[in-house]
Design a protein around this nucleic acid. Sequence first.
DNA 1: CATTAAACAGACAAGTCTGTCTGATTAGTG
DNA 2: CACTAATCAGACAGACTTGTCTGTTTAATG
Lengths: 174, 174
Amino acid sequence: MDNPRDRVLNTASLLFHQQGYNSTGINQIISEAKVAKASFYQHFKSKDDLCIAFLTSRHAFWFSELRAYTQDSASHKQSILTAFDFIISMNQKEDFRGCSFLNILSELSKKQDAILSVIQSHKNDLRKFLTEILGEGLLAAHIYLLFESAIIESQLFRSNELVLKSKEIVNHII
Amino acid sequence: MDNPRDRVLNTASLLFHQQGYNSTGINQIISEAKVAKASFYQHFKSKDDLCIAFLTSRHAFWFSELRAYTQDSASHKQSILTAFDFIISMNQKEDFRGCSFLNILSELSKKQDAILSVIQSHKNDLRKFLTEILGEGLLAAHIYLLFESAIIESQLFRSNELVLKSKEIVNHII
DNA sequence: CATTAAACAGACAAGTCTGTCTGATTAGTG
DNA sequence: CACTAATCAGACAGACTTGTCTGTTTAATG
């Protein structure tokens, strides 16, 4: 929170999440982070570079929160059900802004394949997270797909309705 | 294809799909559509107005294609399975660009709630489409969630892998 | 206390954006 | 042929974009 790099990263996280990547300018970021432009470009060589730093830190944050949320579960089934509660908790905390990674995915052009790779990695890690709990079969893919749409649909409708429905469905199929 | 309004709409559809909404400027649209700027603003009172016109026409196009694709199916189950083939066919035709509606959703600011409504309507109609085939229960929601993630994940990974997995899953649960 | 590195403010270039406006040209109709 | 409405080209305003650059100030360390 103290040094300029962290201030930029924190501010950018908020703004990218609230306004989207392309709608958030460097000038707004540095002004709200109270950092000089020259300092910004000392730490990040471009806006896309900042984007990758943001996604990397978001990745670490998001997974550590997910693990913290689910680790106390008594069973594998309970872990998975709690993961859906985690979505609800994030929706509440972040006002239904959905998934940072998928939001940025929609804004990418073909030249930004470095960013695409970071997004794909993140989702591959989520698939791994579920596979470690559920094994290699179709079930893990099934849950992954439901988990993804639960996030997106709650963003779309600004509501947890479909997260709760997903959880109910998951409760039947595990 | 002849009149300026249609030329704008067709060009915008392509460009919004390929580059995203915020990354596509009016100037590029009118230049590629070979329409004067004054003519553009005679037909659309703003870029957001064009966006709504685009989504409206996309909605009509997409549903008519989906219905054409699924109507010959022998059973309800077959209709649903064929709907997943429709995703594959669209991915091929449109190079894994995903869902126009969800792509634009990620780019919206709070002030653009008119556009949000159009997107929500579209998805509500998709839910209705599935409910008409499958009835009101959890199953329709279940298929809807798998359908949505099948589209998104194929965009993310530029691959039909998870569409095919979804179809396999659907084949088990119906 | 002097030196060095980092952060500061902010002008600037070169380009983008949306939307308005002027004025010329075309096409269709009475 | 004359009138009307649509379309044309493109300048323009005003604000925005990313990234570079100059020069000043602050903070830490030998």
